[in-house]
Simulated assay, not measured.
Amino acid sequence: MVMKILILKPSSLGDVVQALPVARLIKQHQPKAELHWWLNRELVPLLEGDPDLTRVIPFDRKLSGTPRGLSLMWSQIRTLRRERFDWVIDLQGLARSALVGWLSRGGFTIGLRDWREGAPALYDVAVRRATYETHAVDWYLAVLRRLDVPVHQNFTWLPIRTEAAQAVQERCPAPGARWIALQPGARWDNKRWPVGAFAELARKLVQADPGLRIAVLGSAADAPLGREIGAAGGEQVLDLTGRLSLPELVEWLR
């Protein structure tokens, strides 16, 4: 019988990337298992078509709390119930993800022991963080150990996306040079280094090494930051803000 597994990790981008080893290692341990990932719609392109995932289930975060959002959520819950998941793995650890997991009525629900929003009350097993300094990836891998899934580093974090790689070569080639990538944007302002500091860094870097190239990465919302940094660094700066999809961004960095 094919095992069905639901992974709840809707956001944010960096957190989703850090959770990928969970999918990779489960799939290595149980190659025939079906893995479904509940993900913020804005991040779906990152995992769409991933070879280890059976399905990416989009979550419309922007509609949260609205009548339409609640209607869509309830419809999605009914769909999840029909899947009859054997395992539900909540790597978000917040009230909303825990509630989705509980309402999906999986056979066994496991998640992170984080009581900020009471999520562990809805799990069968909650996995404690070893120490305050324990990295998120190691915490997620501790969940796998509780599921008797072997943990190792022999996996590909983000497999090559051939079409995205070809698109990058055609539209945004990176000729042979030494590159430094800057990512000035962040979801929360208190997690951002001031754009003026990025601009000053770019200016000093290109002055110190005329052969160096700088790429500014980010979404379309980060375009004003890219322009300011580009103005400071001149022709040695390649502003890629808003020009690459998530898969293309990965392939450009690769």
Results as ranks from 00 to 15, higher is better:
1 M>N: 14
1 M>V: 11
3 M>F: 10
4 K>E: 00
5 I>V: 14
8 L>S: 01
9 K>H: 13
9 K>P: 02
12 S>W: 04
14 G>R: 04
15 D>K: 05
19 A>Q: 14
21 P>I: 03
23 A>D: 02
24 R>N: 13
26 I>D: 00
29 H>W: 13
30 Q>C: 05
31 P>I: 02
33 A>T: 01
34 E>Y: 08
37 W>S: 01
40 N>E: 14
49 G>V: 12
53 L>V: 01
53 L>M: 10
56 V>K: 00
57 I>D: 00
57 I>N: 00
62 K>R: 06
65 G>C: 12
72 L>R: 02
72 L>G: 11
73 M>I: 03
77 I>T: 00
89 I>L: 10
90 D>V: 04
92 Q>V: 03
92 Q>Y: 11
97 S>W: 09
103 L>W: 09
105 R>I: 02
106 G>M: 00
108 F>W: 12
111 G>T: 05
112 L>K: 12
115 W>M: 15
116 R>A: 12
117 E>C: 15
117 E>P: 06
117 E>H: 14
119 A>T: 10
120 P>S: 06
123 Y>T: 07
127 V>N: 09
133 E>M: 11
140 Y>D: 02
140 Y>H: 10
143 V>W: 02
151 V>T: 09
154 N>V: 00
156 T>R: 13
160 I>Q: 15
164 A>C: 12
166 Q>F: 08
166 Q>M: 11
166 Q>G: 09
167 A>Q: 12
168 V>E: 09
171 R>E: 14
176 G>C: 01
176 G>E: 12
177 A>C: 07
180 I>Q: 07
191 K>V: 06
192 R>N: 07
195 V>W: 04
196 G>V: 13
198 F>D: 07
198 F>P: 15
201 L>S: 07
201 L>F: 06
203 R>G: 05
204 K>A: 03
205 L>I: 03
208 A>V: 04
213 R>V: 05
214 I>M: 08
220 A>R: 14
227 R>N: 07
231 A>I: 07
238 L>V: 09
238 L>M: 15
242 G>K: 04
242 G>L: 11
243 R>T: 01
243 R>C: 01
247 P>V: 12
247 P>A: 13
